[in-house]
């Protein structure tokens, strides 16, 4: 029987992630989805940029490209267009994707290039020690927002939708089953699939924001996640989402013409 175990580079384990880091969970969910898709190890390419999340491909025993900060999507575009038969998955983080790589992100969405992008949004720059990112919620303390973040955040899933991606969803590291399913649906859909996985960073985010333990961070995500349908209902009733809460669910699923799709030979 094929097992997820075949996909890990066991000689590199345990990985560098801190205790309780959500990235490992997202790797699990991704590989679970890959298993369900029945992809071939030698035909799957994992690509990442720089940051904690981007170290993930190093633990997966496929061909993988650990690139420069923010450019993962551009590298992935090259790989995919040179060999469209590859199954390409991009791991990225919130800083990597939305700050330094924001331009590549919206353009990859616009091109609707056939790949799956999984963004581990931990709301912080973890690798460099906890600086504020474009996804740090208002009021949160980071080393570069010592008096609380004041800038509005990026809603990445919505951004992907608006930029033209065929699939966009958001779940958290708590919702493992839903996340796995969303990743699988994303992999099935031709075109650009974006899955934002909110993850916990107890070391750099939780520690400074009264969420000291991993479990408390996960509880925070569980309690503040609002299903998209519920949010829509609330909106219809004229109730607003209280600050700090965020929506989860499937934002868009459509079948616009996409780039880099291999037509099935019949």
């Amino acid at each position: 029987m094929k097992s997820v175990e075949d996909w890990y580079r066991h000689d590199r384990m345990p990985h560098i992630f801190c205790t309780g880091c959500g990235n490992g969970t997202v790797i699990n969910c991704t590989l679970e989805a890959v298993m369900q898709m029945g992809w071939d190890i030698d035909n799957t390419i994992f690509i990442s940029g720089i940051g904690c999340s981007s170290r993930s491909p190093g633990y997966i025993t496929t061909d993988s490209l650990h690139t420069t900060h923010g450019r993962a999507l551009a590298f992935a575009t090259g790989v995919k267009l040179a060999k469209p038969e590859f199954d390409v998955v991009v791991f990225t983080g919130d800083g990597d994707l939305s700050a330094i790589g924001g331009n590549h992100f919206i353009h990859a969405c616009r091109r609707n290039i056939n790949m799956t992008v999984i963004c581990m949004n931990n709301m912080i720059y973890g690798m460099t020690g906890g600086q504020g990112s474009p996804c740090t919620p208002a009021g949160a303390i980071s080393t570069t927002t010592p008096y609380g973040a004041t800038e509005p955040v990026f809603d990445l899933a919505r951004l992907a939708e608006a930029s033209g991606a065929n699939y966009s969803a958001r779940w958290t590291a708590y919702h493992v089953k839903e996340l796995t399913k969303a990743i699988k649906v994303g992999m099935e859909i031709p075109g650009f699939s974006f899955i934002e996985a909110m993850t916990q960073c107890p070391t750099s985010y939780g520690r400074r924001n009264k969420l000291r333990t991993t479990t408390s961070m996960l509880e925070y995500m569980r309690d503040n996640a609002v299903l998209l349908n519920k949010a829509k209902r609330m909106e219809a009733e004229g109730r607003e989402l209280s600050p700090g809460r965020f929506t989860v669910g499937e934002f868009v699923k459509r079948f616009r013409p996409a780039l880099g799709v291999v037509k099935d030979e019949e």
Partner: peptide, 21 residues
């Protein structure tokens, strides 16, 4: 492919090179 900037164009050709092109 016309990329969105030069950062992306060199990234894409490195990716393509690893894919064998």
């Amino acid at each position: 492919i016309q990329m969105e900037d030069e950062l992306a164009s060199i990234s894409s050709i490195i990716g393509a090179s690893w894919a064998g092109a």
